[in-house]
């Protein structure tokens, strides 16, 4: 699993005393993507944030629900409740990196990474903002760790945990790894059996890592384009 020290260093740097683990995972990748592009520790105007996750902060959500079962309603922790909100991590990124722009959290179980990239493309092309911090994240908790045994047909392999952040821009800037395009393929007939390769949840985070890997691989070849379908 992700080392506690790595998350602790991010929490200490940005004084995230009460942030939950999910937020720290999101922050670790988002901070690094901005630093990689040369925007570290400075306000980024006209920048949007899109955070995509199939399960979101479910560790915190269940912690809050467990508290509701164990304690009277007026004695549960408001801090746990506020972090159980799906958009909390995006707000932390906006606040810590002083990013001003639209802030969106996406969730879903099919083609989530593609949806997130496509939404980023729409935001940039429509002039809604000049940059997008796009984060794909998945945190493992009791539910997600148990899924292969609870639903072996849908989740036949162990889920991945991690986070990938891309700083996307409408014009070349920063490291300028590559350009990226999204095109939705029209589906005819039945979808292929996705379970034969991997669980859809893993497809999401795996897809995010693959996009980052392709971008890194293309950094030595300027002018290349990654096409996501």
């Amino acid at each position: 699993s992700i080392s506690k020290d790595a998350l602790l260093s991010v929490k200490n740097k940005y004084d995230l005393r009460r942030a939950d683990r999910y937020t720290a995972i999101v922050m670790a990748s988002a901070v690094q993507a901005c630093a990689d592009a040369g925007f570290a520790d400075c306000a980024m105007a006209d920048t949007g944030i899109i955070i995509a996750s199939s399960f979101g902060p479910h560790r915190t959500t269940f912690a809050f629900l467990n508290d509701i079962l164990d304690y009277p309603e007026d004695q549960v922790l408001p801090t746990t409740f506020s972090h159980s909100v799906h958009n909390a991590a995006a707000s932390y990124v906006a606040s810590s990196l002083q990013i001003r722009g639209p802030t969106i959290s996406l969730t879903g179980f099919e083609d989530l990474w593609f949806d997130a990239l496509e939404l980023s493309d729409v935001f940039l092309n429509s002039g809604c903002c000049q940059r997008i911090v796009l984060v794909g994240v998945e945190e493992l908790a009791l539910l997600t760790q148990s899924l292969p045994s609870i639903l072996p047909d849908s989740f036949h392999c162990r889920l991945l945990e991690g986070s990938v952040a891309l700083l996307l821009s409408s014009t070349p800037e920063g490291k300028n790894y590559t350009s990226i395009t999204c095109s939705r393929r029209s589906s005819c007939g039945e979808k292929p059996d996705r379970h034969s390769s991997c669980a859809t949840a893993n497809d999401f985070l795996g897809g995010a890592f693959q996009t980052a890997l392709k971008a890194l691989a293309s950094s030595n070849q300027p002018g290349t384009t990654i096409s996501i379908g």
Binding site: S1, I2, S3, A6, V10, I25, A28, S29, A30, V31, Q32, A33, C34, A35, D36, A37, G38, F39, S120, D121, L124, N125, R131, I132, L160, E161, G162, S163, V164, A165, L166, L167, L168, S169, S170, T171, P172, E173, G174, K175, N176, Y177, T178, S179, I180, T181, F209, A212, L213, A215, L216, I226
Partner: peptide, 19 residues
Amino acid sequence: MFISGIGAISASGIGTENL
């Protein structure tokens, strides 16, 4: 659109060198 920066964290740590 263009990819201007990359960040990642997984079991292998923070940073693109871990990808």
